[in-house]
């Protein structure tokens, strides 16, 4: 797969990352390098290997359904830039 400069810009847009023309070019060449690596790896026959969803061969531990956290709003809000009436204030999200 060949990556275009527009692909880089689209992904950057989705990730909310601002990239300049220069940065986009640099990212394109780096990402293309990664794609080349993937291409090389794809030469390996993996048709009999089950895909992994996690790097560790472990199983998820489950917690009992119990409330264990207490109210720490004041502590948490002490580091927030702006709060009011117990709410965190953020720049308006316009849809």
């Amino acid at each position: 797969m060949t990556l275009s400069i527009n692909d880089v810009k689209q992904v950057a847009g989705l990730a909310y990352i601002k990239v300049s023309e220069e940065e986009a070019e640099a990212a394109l060449s780096q990402l293309s390098g990664i794609f080349k690596l993937i291409e090389t790896m794809q030469a390996v026959d993996t048709s009999h290997v089950e895909p992994m969803s996690h790097a560790q061969d472990l199983v998820q531990r489950l917690r009992e359904d119990k409330v264990t956290e207490s109210d720490q709003r004041d502590l948490c809000q002490s580091i927030a830039p702006q709060v009011e009436n117990g709410l965190y204030l953020v720049p308006k999200v316009i849809e």
């Binding site: 917690r63 359904d65 119990k66 409330v67 264990t68 956290e69 109210d71 720490q72 709003r73 948490c76 809000q77 009436n85 117990g86 709410l87 965190y88």
Partner: peptide
């Protein structure tokens, strides 16, 4: 009783952010 990934309560109607761990 508690959230899917944390031990905070899921009770409805609490004061804002008092059940946000």
């Amino acid at each position: 009783q508690s959230k899917i990934f944390s031990g905070a309560s899921t009770a409805y109607g609490a004061l804002p952010n008092t059940q946000a761990s």
